[in-house]
Amino acid sequence: MPTFPLTLVVITYNEANSIARCLDSVPFAAEKLVIDSGSTDDTVAIAQAHGARVVHQDWLGFGAQRNFATTQCSHDWILALDADEYLSPELAAELERRLPELMASDNSAVILRRATIYMGAPMRWYLPSMGEKMARLFHRDRARWKDVRVHESLVFDGPSVTLHARFNHENNPSLPQKQIKVLRYAELKCRDWLEKNKPVRMWQTPFVYLLAFIKDYFFRLAFLDGWRGFVIAQTAASYAAYKRMRYYEMRRNPASLESAADALIRHGIDR
């Protein structure tokens, strides 16, 4: 397979179990770059063994970490994947065929579709897992990541194109790993709310939980995926409610910020 002047960039922290698969799924990238924030497992050694250049950067938050990664790339066109994501053979072939045209165009970004593997098997009906559209291939002079702690997205004003084939997301190999991520993401989101002085509206919490569950379970068709769909809907609803409860605690008891941060670091949940 030919290579193209493209950088694959992955941000990592203790991703030894998945980084090789991610890197190997993009054989056409002229550069593979890993931005690591202090892994204590074999992530760095495995990434280097699979052809990646590794740069250490202390954790800045998701948006800032991705923007830092952009500055370290050797090429203007960048493909951003998470360590638990990887290209399907179909998408790799589609990119190989279309990259010369795309990279010569004035497009700012390319929208890719993401499919989710959950509890060891692909989701078949749950809509966000069947082809969620995400801007992941972009020209660094025409796009930038939102500078937020969590739930970052790519911002661009110019034209874009959407590809047909999908890349895969191995979504949290186990429920304990999912709950760890929920705790971390909620803490980051609540800190963003705190900086913006968002009003506390605890009375909304029961309704938020109920509406989030109904949206995912029924309107997003999670129920068609059986008990796995129920687990996904319940987890999403719990996350929506927990964020509000944690933010209420932050505002009511500011000392909980420091004690929670210490606990998350002590248990390896935060950096």
Rank of each mutant, 00 (worst) to 15 (best):
A240E: 01
A47L: 15
K215W: 05
T70A: 12
H164I: 09
W59C: 10
E152Q: 12
T162K: 05
M202N: 05
K133E: 13
D24G: 10
S18E: 14
P173Q: 10
I19W: 00
A29N: 04
T116D: 14
Q204A: 06
R124P: 02
A135P: 14
R271T: 05
L154D: 07
P173Y: 03
F68W: 05
V182P: 10
P27H: 06
Q234L: 14
A241M: 08
S256V: 06
D192P: 02
V231T: 11
A143N: 13
S174F: 03
D41H: 03
D141E: 14
R191L: 04
H151D: 15
I265Y: 11
A212G: 03
I214C: 10
L127R: 13
P159W: 06
I214F: 09
E187W: 15
M134I: 15
E94I: 01
D157E: 15
I232Q: 09
S153D: 15
H151G: 10
H75P: 02
A186P: 02
F167C: 07
E90L: 14
L8E: 00
R140T: 11
A121V: 08
G51P: 11
D157M: 13
K215T: 02
R97K: 13
A47C: 11
R142W: 08
S74P: 04
Y217T: 00
F219M: 11
P173V: 09
P5L: 00
D192L: 05
D42Q: 13
A20E: 15
Q234H: 13
I35W: 11
A255V: 12
G51K: 03
L95Q: 02
E101I: 03
A222Y: 01
L91M: 12
H139N: 05
N14Y: 10
I35P: 06
A49S: 15
L183K: 12
F219P: 05
A212M: 09
I46S: 10
Q177L: 08
T7V: 03
M103N: 08
Y86K: 06
L6P: 07
D24S: 14
K189E: 13
P159A: 12
D24I: 04
Q72G: 04
E101C: 06
T116F: 13
E101Y: 04
I111Y: 04
L154V: 11
G229R: 01
V155F: 09
R149T: 04
K189W: 11
A69N: 07
R220K: 14
P254Y: 04
Y239D: 08
T71Q: 02
L8R: 00
G226S: 07
I46F: 03
S256H: 01
I46M: 14
F230I: 07
D84Y: 01
F207V: 00
Q48I: 12
A16P: 10
T7L: 00
G61T: 03
G158E: 05
R266T: 08
I111F: 06
L137W: 02
K178G: 11
D106G: 08
H50R: 12
Y86S: 06
E170H: 09
M1D: 14
S259K: 06
A104G: 11
Q65E: 01
A52R: 07
L194S: 07
N253L: 11
Q177E: 13
F28H: 14
W227L: 09
V155K: 10
P100G: 05
